[in-house]
Simulated scan of single mutants.
Amino acid sequence: MDAEAEFGLNVPEYFFYLLFQAVRRRDAAFERALAPLELNLGQWRAISTVRRCGTCSMSDLAAFTAVDRTTLTRSVDQLVRRGLMVRETPATDRRQVHLTLTDRGRAMYDKAVDQLLEFNRTALEGVDETRRREISRGLATVIGNLAPDPKVAEALIRFEPDLMRAARG
């Protein structure tokens, strides 16, 4: 129980309970919003991450989306079949896979991101900028505490593909 009796659970447990509830409810609602574009949440995460990275390895995609590689491979396969993404294997290292968006993929991103921005505005209604920044700093600290390596944590927190590549050496 919360020592101050503000919450029904102790504060750390309540924090993660609310975080889980927020993420799950946001994901479910946003997936419904993506349905008219014939995208699911996993596909959107792949598209948006590759868009941010420019060219993205499967390892970076897995790290930035926090989705396992098997699920990502399925999503990427579907996006490649739809002509939204291309998968390339460099001649210098056949083990690597690089992903980039096609023109159609960038157009799909543009359509979906407009929905995302509107969706986020609605979800964050009543949470002022100061509080959003405070919560974001707190979550960044939690990620830093949980990531396996401080350099990986920094790359995740800053969403910087170059830092992730450097962290992996």
Rank of each mutant, 00 (worst) to 15 (best):
Y17I: 05
V11M: 00
R168P: 01
E6Q: 09
R74C: 07
E118V: 10
R121M: 13
G105A: 03
V113F: 11
A5S: 13
R45G: 11
L18C: 10
Q115Y: 10
F159H: 07
V11E: 02
R133I: 03
A91R: 03
A63W: 03
D68I: 01
V97A: 12
L79V: 04
A35M: 07
E38P: 05
L124Q: 13
A153F: 13
E118Q: 11
E88Y: 15
R104P: 00
P161A: 15
G83L: 02
M1I: 12
V152P: 00
R165S: 14
A167C: 04
V50E: 00
E154Q: 15
D103L: 02
A166E: 13
V80P: 06
R168L: 12
D110I: 12
E13K: 01
L116S: 11
L117R: 11
K151V: 15
R26D: 08
L79I: 04
D149M: 12
D149R: 10
T70G: 09
R137K: 05
R137G: 08
A33C: 11
A29E: 08
M108F: 08
T73V: 06
E31K: 05
R82E: 02
S59I: 00
A166P: 01
V23K: 09
F30T: 10
V23Y: 03
D60L: 05
A62S: 15
R52F: 00
T71E: 09
F15E: 00
A33T: 11
A123E: 08
V142W: 04
E154V: 14
Q96G: 11
Q78G: 04
E134S: 09
T70V: 13
V142N: 01
T130D: 12
Y17C: 07
P12C: 00
A167N: 10
L139N: 04
R26Q: 04
E88G: 15
R32E: 11
P161S: 14
L61V: 09
A153C: 14
L117A: 08
A155R: 06
E38C: 04
Q43S: 03
L101I: 09
V86N: 10
N40A: 03
S48R: 14
V76A: 01
V11Q: 02
T122G: 14
F119T: 14
F159G: 00
K111L: 13
G83F: 01
F7L: 14
D110K: 14
A66W: 12
T70F: 07
D77A: 06
A63R: 05
R94S: 10
T100Y: 10
E6M: 10
N10I: 10
R52M: 03
K111D: 11
E38L: 10
W44V: 05
V50D: 01
D162A: 15
D77Y: 03
L19E: 04
L72E: 06
A147D: 15
L19H: 05
D128Q: 11
A33L: 11
L18T: 07
F15H: 02
L124G: 12
L146F: 15
D27S: 12
L18R: 13
F159W: 06
F64Y: 04
G54E: 03
E154S: 14
T122L: 14
E4L: 02
T55W: 08
V80L: 10
C53Q: 08
T65A: 04
T71H: 06
V86D: 11
D93C: 00
G144M: 14
V76F: 00
M164W: 07
N120M: 15
S59T: 00
L156A: 08
D128I: 08
V142L: 09
D110W: 09
A5P: 08
R32C: 01
P161Y: 12
R104N: 01
A35Q: 11
R87Q: 13
